[in-house]
Amino acid sequence: MADAANQIPDRIPINLIVNGNRRTLDLVPWTTLLDALRDHLVLTGTKKGCDHGQCGACTVLVDGRRINSCLTLAVMKDGAEITTVEGIAKDGAMHPLQQAFIDHDAFQCGYCTPGQICSAAGLLAEGHAKDSDEIRELMSGNLCRCGAYPNIVAAIQQAMGQP
């Protein structure tokens, strides 16, 4: 007979602050943050691409840092502040990155765009990118199958205030 202290609970209560709103979820322990956002909170802007952390479509900000939500268990982020693409805009006004993506036509099919925007927001907050080469390097974890990379870099430069 198994020791009750060593059994995995059926569900675990998780508290998250998602896009400024406190949310409590009862999740099975193996639920990824991506699945918690999409399936339990119906925030479908964050995309499931490769489900292996290689494409960046699932990028969200956790406590201001960009992560691949498909590789992160929701229970690991209990109490964290999560920002998805739905939470990037403030008070009905687009985030400068969102406007820059429009201005530079930095999307084609749009599937990667939420992850690209969240990753770019993290990149701006980190303050490490100084030129287009550094932007490309620091955004290399976000893939675009349509090849809109030059436009994405231009959009990020615009949001950074670079010509």
Rank of each mutant, 00 (worst) to 15 (best):
H95F: 00
P96L: 07
A120N: 01
A100T: 05
S140N: 12
L73S: 08
K48S: 13
Q116R: 09
H128R: 15
H128N: 14
L43R: 05
D91W: 02
K90D: 12
C70Y: 05
K130M: 13
A129C: 09
T46Q: 07
I67N: 01
V62F: 08
H95V: 06
H40Y: 11
S132I: 09
T84I: 07
T59L: 05
E137M: 12
M94G: 10
A100Y: 02
Q99P: 04
E137H: 13
I102T: 13
G115S: 11
V60C: 04
R66M: 07
M76T: 14
V85E: 01
L71P: 08
T113A: 12
T59F: 02
T46V: 08
F107G: 01
C70P: 04
C50Q: 10
Q108I: 05
I135G: 04
G127L: 09
G115V: 03
E134C: 08
T84E: 09
L97F: 04
M76W: 14
H128K: 15
T72C: 13
I102W: 10
A106P: 03
I82H: 00
A100K: 00
K47N: 10
G49K: 06
G110R: 06
D51M: 08
I67Y: 07
E126K: 15
H104S: 04
I117F: 04
S132P: 02
K130G: 14
A121S: 12
E137K: 11
A121T: 14
G79T: 00
E134D: 15
H95Q: 00
G49D: 04
A93D: 12
Q98F: 07
A125R: 15
D51R: 08
C118L: 10
M94D: 10
T46N: 08
I82M: 06
C112Q: 05
K77M: 14
D91K: 12
T84N: 08
Q99M: 11
M94K: 13
V62Q: 06
T72P: 02
M76K: 12
E81A: 13
G87C: 06
T113G: 00
A106C: 03
C58D: 09
I82T: 05
C50I: 08
L37V: 02
L71W: 03
Q108W: 03
C58W: 00
E126M: 11
L123Q: 02
Q116N: 03
G49Q: 07
I88A: 13
H104D: 10
R65L: 14
D133N: 13
A89E: 10
L124I: 15
I117Q: 00
I102E: 12
K90S: 14
R65N: 14
D39V: 08
V75S: 09
L124Q: 10
A120C: 07
T44I: 15
V85A: 12
G127K: 08
G64H: 09
E134M: 13
E86L: 04
T59N: 09
V62A: 14
L138M: 13
D133P: 05
G110T: 06
T113L: 04
A100W: 02
S140H: 11
L37N: 01
Q54R: 12
V75Q: 11
H52G: 11
S69P: 06
I135A: 06
D103N: 15
A89H: 02
I135M: 03
V62I: 14
A106V: 03
A106N: 03
L71C: 09
H104E: 12
K90I: 12
G127I: 06
L41K: 03
F101T: 01
V60K: 01
E134R: 11
E137C: 07
